[in-house]
């Protein structure tokens, strides 16, 4: 065998691996970095009504409704874990091209001008961050989640005539704080 051919093969092999790694790096950079943990929200002093929803209920709701969520791959189930500091981690099982895989991530909660603001702070496929790719695969997911959550809040609190002031989380509860209008 000609030495030049072996050399060509080796250079080609290295170039191919480099190209693939560079491509992966570009994709991962599109995945973006996780949003910083939000500052701990304080309980609004003028709140006259607070509604605390248990983590187990949120987890059950996520598991029951996960199949209907928009996703590039079929969703098999999910669970949510509330944490202090206006955030929650989630795990969603998907039936991906490489088999059953766990997508993990972190949501943050806030209130802006009386509206609940849910932010997808981080999404990982295994150890690989894919946060930025969510917008590519499921465009408008965050907007859709926020629209649905706020519509439900509005429908459920319309009779009570209250305005949302703030939201906090601890290990067990997601708490909404309201005051009368």
């Amino acid at each position: 065998m000609n030495v030049n051919r072996w050399l060509g093969l080796l250079i080609g092999l290295l170039a191919g691996m480099f190209l693939c790694c560079a491509g992966t790096a570009v994709i991962l950079s599109l995945g973006g970095t996780a949003s910083p943990v939000p500052t701990l929200s304080v309980v609004p002093s003028n709140a006259t009504l607070d509604v605390a929803i248990d983590e187990a209920y949120l987890s059950r709701t996520l598991a029951q409704n996960a199949k209907g969520f928009p996703s590039p791959w079929p969703i098999l189930g999910g669970q949510m874990n509330l944490q202090p500091g206006n955030q929650a981690t989630f795990t969603v099982l998907v039936d991906g091209p490489l088999g059953r895989m766990a997508v993990t991530g972190r949501l943050t909660f806030g209130v802006t001008q009386g509206r609940l603001n849910i932010h997808i702070a981080e999404v990982k496929l295994g150890a690989i961050p894919v946060t930025g790719l969510i917008e590519f695969f499921v465009p408008g997911l965050e907007t859709q989640i926020n629209a649905e959550a706020n519509q439900q809040l509005q429908e459920r609190t319309a009779g009570a005539g209250v305005t949302l002031l703030g939201v906090t989380t601890d290990d067990q509860f997601l708490r909404f704080y309201f005051t009368e209008q």
């Binding site: 060509g8 093969l9 250079i11 080609g12 170039a15 191919g16």
Partner: peptide
């Protein structure tokens, strides 16, 4: 050979 190697590498 280089092209083949490139494919294999990728």
């Amino acid at each position: 050979f280089g092209c083949g190697g490139c494919g294999c590498g990728m």
